[in-house]
Write a protein that binds this DNA or RNA. Structure first.
Lengths: 194, 194, 194, 194
DNA sequence: ACTTAAGCGAGACGGTACGTCTCGTCTTAAC
DNA sequence: GTTAAGACGAGACGTACCGTCTCGCTTAAGT
């Protein structure tokens, strides 16, 4: 009832190989970094050949984004009815994601390719950045509508504060600086009752 | 008293070539991006050869950092006696620097090379990041000592807020989002008198 | 009486496709040469797929030989009773065949594959070379038995003279050199009465 | 006094590598045939890399022609004053060359590339075929002028008889057929005194 | 004026990765 | 059982940079 079970002709894609490639990609990214990620290296590690990789992933960026899809996905921010709870949820999810080693590597690679492989940068934005931004923006707007923000605060600007600060505290430094990050951000954005 | 004017024997370095290389580097970075910056391309554009480049710059990163030194340097934050004036000065300088097209490219390249060409990342941090951070940190600490910050604020954290937010508003988006950036940051860090 | 019309089970071979493949092979050979003849190209031109080609022709050589069978076949040399008439017939048939554009291409491909695709070279010899050689050899031997050859001439050697000379005058040069070829050869082999 | 000893700037070509490449080419041709001759295989066998090969030889054909230059060169036919001696010399040199295993392989490769890599075919003609043809043609014309040929014989045609027959007796068959080849050809072209 | 030492252009070298192409084999669904 | 469709491992192709090297010529400073 879910699937009409309609199959296309031709030999079906080899799912084992597919998964082995993604796994090899993750391994190389974590162990050697993006600058060592090579079609040849991935093919060798996955026990397949470059031809097969090129068939499915036109560029390294596409491969990376698919391999790290789970690590990059940020998820939902439910409407709890309480402003602080909502924003806290959004911030926490962001911190968790940016603290993931694989996600860090992918984020830096995406930034590195802001020029050059536009494909990767664009898809990264569309698949990872925008969804979270719109979700978090909704939470912040709800808070504003309840009057919990500093008067005159622009939700988009606050979003940039959150993302930028988390980025600066987690991705940029060699050792993440997580102490007081979550609380500090919340206090900035939702000034505690005076 | 400054220099005994003691010269080494042999032909002195060709300053015209030196400057032409830096200029060619800047031109390629601005016109084609970092991923197109190649020793060969620079040599051709500067009318010299790769051998000469390799003699003076061991890596592309070193070349970029020297070529963009002026664009990356952020400068001093004098002690004006007024907290808001000091922090405003620091923020404004950061925004100005991060808005420079060449600086943007170099910053992204440095982040991209956080793995890989450690040399560039390290030198970027030492030459561009730390000086500004320590200067700005001093300004913030002065503000804290005067009691102008929200109580309990950590100067290091506030620095990350500033850098991260400015980065997020200027470098990351295709079009910089400068509206309200300076004022918004100051209001966050130095809560206006109520 | 000719065939019990005994059919094998399953779908019969698609004769239209079969003929389309041979026609496509001839077209590509004539228009683009042997080095452009590719299973993929033939399949595309014939409106079928590579798998089908591989089922019926194990190698390009087999495909070529079947496609050019008519162009390569040289035919009979009847015993006319007159030595010169017999040898003239054999030489003329050889010249006609070696002048055929498709045959030229196939002959060169066969020689090219004297190493490598032994299959093609061998089958070419067996299907095209030997039949003509034995027929022509018989004609020459009849001439020798009638005393019409130069005394001491070896029929096999004369065969090589004929084949080699025709090859050299038709296949090798960009423009065939047919003037006086037939007559010249006959005069060499059957010295005119003095 | 012979050479101004004027050297070009830049690192001089590595003659050891150069010779190793040619030697490796010869070895592969003899042991595995032209269809196994690959830039990669040559590079490996010569202990160098494909890049270096591509620097000097744009195509496999160019490499083959240089590697086999000595084997292909046919040499002079001096004017001895005697027709039979001259033609005998030309024929003997041709037989010797066509009997050389490496030359056989190269000749077949050149024929195979009569379409396709025109470069090789053309250069083969110009470097190997034409020189011998013009030398041998001169010898035959001297013989004609002395009245030693059959009356009415065309020197160009006789050249084709010689080349074609030798080709047919040496290159085409798996085992060369040299018995009586030289004498047979001479008797055909210069009819013995009657 | 002559020596000396470094700078510079030219360009070859061994590597490595790229992205494309064809090969021959294979696995499915439809006919 | 044949066909179309198409994925798969294999491996050669020609190009582009890399970082290193070996040259011959040039340019001053020091003798």
């Amino acid at each position: 009832m879910t699937e009409p079970a309609r199959r296309t002709p031709g030999r079906p894609r080899d799912v084992d190989t597919h998964e082995a490639v993604l796994e090899a990609t993750r391994a190389i990214l974590l162990e050697q970094g993006y600058h060592r990620l090579t079609f040849g290296a991935v093919a060798d590690a996955a026990g397949t050949t470059r031809s097969t990789l090129y068939r499915w992933w036109p560029t390294l960026g596409a491969l990376v984004l698919e391999a790290a899809a789970d690590n990059i996905d940020i998820g939902e921010v439910p409407d709890s009815g309480d402003s602080r709870t909502d924003v806290e949820c959004a911030v926490r999810q962001l911190i968790r994601t940016f603290s993931d080693p694989l996600a860090k590597i992918v984020i830096m690679a995406a930034i590195a390719n802001l020029d050059g492989d536009m494909d990767m940068a664009t898809r990264f934005r569309e698949e990872a950045v925008y969804p979270w931004r719109s979700t978090a923006a909704a939470a912040i707007e709800r808070a504003r509508d309840r009057g919990d923000l500093s008067p005159g605060s622009d939700p988009t600007f606050l979003l940039n504060v959150i993302v930028g600060t988390v980025f600066q505290c987690t991705v940029v430094p060699a050792k993440p600086m997580l102490d007081g990050l979550e609380g500090g951000l919340l206090d900035l954005i939702l000034p505690p009752a005076r």
